[in-house]
């Protein structure tokens, strides 16, 4: 498991931490009922304020992504709605990309057209692969 935190990013660190845990769950790195690292261990590994990690875990618990077993630690929720998590992550990625596009003077329509154009060769290749198989 690898979490990346970038303190120079404008998002608060506990939000970055929450997003990273969600990303690992959607990627399948973290499965239901698997434990998250202890606050102490994660704080030491990432050189983060322990309170930041407590805050991120608490918010994840409130969102139903993880659950806490007193004295045992924090675990990935069993009834996680994966499709919903994927949708959330997609929305985040899109929002960040749109901001970057806007900074470069690209309208949302232009940006959407650009994405379709950029991904078309890839989707064609996939279709071709599927036909050959």
């Amino acid at each position: 498991m690898h979490l990346t935190i970038d303190p120079s990013q404008p998002r608060p660190i506990y939000v970055q931490l929450m997003d990273e845990v969600r990303r690992l769950i959607v990627l399948g790195e973290l499965e239901s009922d698997m434990p998250l690292p202890s606050v102490r261990q994660l704080a030491a590994d990432l050189r983060l304020n322990p309170n930041t990690i407590v805050q991120a875990y608490r918010e994840l618990e409130r969102a139903g992504v993880v659950y806490v077993r007193r004295g045992h630690g924090t675990f990935v929720s069993a009834q996680l709605k994966l499709p919903e998590e994927r949708k959330r992550i997609l929305a985040d990625v899109v929002a960040r990309a749109l901001i970057e596009a806007q900074r470069n003077g690209i309208s949302p329509d232009e940006f959407a057209a650009g994405i379709i154009e950029a991904t078309q060769p890839a989707s064609k290749a996939l279709v071709k692969q599927a036909k050959e198989a």
Binding site: P7, A43, A44, R47, L48
Partner: peptide, 27 residues
């Protein structure tokens, strides 16, 4: 320092010119 903070819940004041070094630690 991070482990000590996590273990003891201690208070810390860090004077430094290298702000980025403690940016993740300071609240």
């Amino acid at each position: 320092f991070t482990e000590h903070t996590a273990d003891t819940g201690c208070t810390a004041v860090v004077s430094t010119h290298l702000v980025s070094e403690v940016a993740q630690l300071a609240d």
